[in-house]
Amino acid sequence: MSQPPSHAELAALAARHNLPKLGGRPPLPDYLRELWGRRFFCFELARARFRSQNEQDRLGVAWIVLRPLINAAVYGFIFGLLLPSRSRQENFVASLVVGVFIFQFFAACLTDGAKSITGNAGLVRSLHFPRAVLPLATVIEQLLALGPMVVVMLVVTLLTGEPVRLHWLHMVPALALMTLFCTGIAMMTARITIHIRDVTQLLPFITRIVFYLSGIFYATPKSTSGAQGALATVLEFNPVHIYISLVRGAVIVGEPAPAGAWLLGTVFAVAFAVFGFVYFWAAEERYGRE
């Protein structure tokens, strides 16, 4: 027994007893099946994180809506009162609150998604499960936060004089598409961070640029020439702006969703989700080596 057997003997022994080789990346269908098997874990992890995140503060879960509300108030003060401009939306308050709240969902998926593997090293090192559970749990956690945010968002729009209407239901497909898009984003940033840790340092700047390019506190420019024209093009093809305008279309009468937004929103959602998932899965065996 003290003399180790040869490589050929061991491989033959494994083959004779049908022992599968460990590690490596399972084929995509198997991976999806494993992922489905851990769906309870994924959901429970998201719920547990969501709770623990807010249990320390006195106001607890209220901060989920307070933070973006204060954020919106600050932007409203700066861009509505200090720097008023004619490019502001008609119902500026409602438009701003919808923009800030919906953007918050995207930003959280982007930043927390990037940390979903590196920030869970303990989990990754001690348990065997499809790693896609981690970025998915991040998105679910943000969806749990989105629930109360949508309620507050609707209350604010009602207070600004917008009517209750059947159109509100458009929010459901709009947010579903955005969730798909954000899942793709979380999967991509989760893997990129593994390759280049420094990305997390850049994320605040990326988030801010996307924020200013998402038409949060200005309306889509009507003239299409020069810098204004370029901005119009960016807004037209910026997925985050598309989802924000779809939600605005659902709750603000004066801001119907632009033509083609649904189509573009669907294309971006499917493309990002599929690409993000495959991109994440392709590096499955790397996540344990950190």
Partner: peptide, 27 residues
């Protein structure tokens, strides 16, 4: 446990081995 990939060589196992470490996965 299949948590750290092999650089060379292989591990064969007939089911998912479970690792019980000092810093397991709890919040």
């Amino acid at each position: 446990a299949g948590l750290t990939p092999a650089k060379q060589g292989a591990v064969y196992a007939d089911s998912d081995p479970t690792l019980l470490g000092v810093n397991a996965a709890l919040i």
